[in-house]
């Protein structure tokens, strides 16, 4: 049996574009009396598994996932220098409507190989934060523990 390749694609707004959803999340967090937050940004995540190579995944990202005017994409684990991140994914068995539509759209691109898709979100936070604050934010604003799992990663430093 062939090994299944796994790919993670991150889609996010270009720096010059205002991300309304990130602004709304920042406001919702501030309403929870968390004031040490400086900046929020959000990426949409697509996890693919199947008989895929980098060329195919790049084509899917370019032609399907990204609005080229306002968004960018990158392959691999999402991270931003100096930012805490929280990834949110549906629990196993919960309907992932966006993933189903993506699967169908991949088929419409003419790529017929079996592909599994999952969608998630990654939130990046800058500010004077710690794991306990992030856990509270994740539970109260970002994820619903009934249907979603979240994973917190501490700030990443870019090597020079």
């Amino acid at each position: 049996m062939k090994k299944k390749d796994k790919w993670l694609v991150e889609v996010f707004y270009r720096p010059e574009v205002v991300d309304g959803q990130a602004e709304a999340i920042k406001k919702a967090i501030e309403e929870e009396s968390i004031t040490s937050l400086e900046k929020v940004s959000i990426s949409l995540l697509y996890r693919f598994s199947g008989q895929l190579d980098r060329t195919i995944v790049t084509r899917i990202a370019k032609e399907l996932l990204v609005d080229r005017i306002s968004q960018l994409y990158r392959l691999g684990n999402p991270r931003r220098p100096g930012a805490w991140s929280v990834q949110v994914w549906y629990k196993l068995g919960v309907t992932d409507a966006a993933a189903e539509t993506t699967k169908q759209a991949i088929f419409d691109l003419g790529l017929n190989g079996p592909v599994e898709v999952a969608t998630g979100r990654c939130y990046f936070f800058w500010g004077n934060l710690n794991k306990s604050i992030l856990t509270s934010i994740a539970q109260r604003v970002l994820a619903n523990a009934l249907i979603e799992d979240f994973q917190i990663s501490s700030p990443w430093s870019q090597k020079k």
Binding site: V94, T95, A97, T101
Partner: peptide, 14 residues
Amino acid sequence: DIPPSVVQIGHPIV
């Protein structure tokens, strides 16, 4: 402690 299975997620495109 409600089981997650009682919640449905919709798919309007379908």
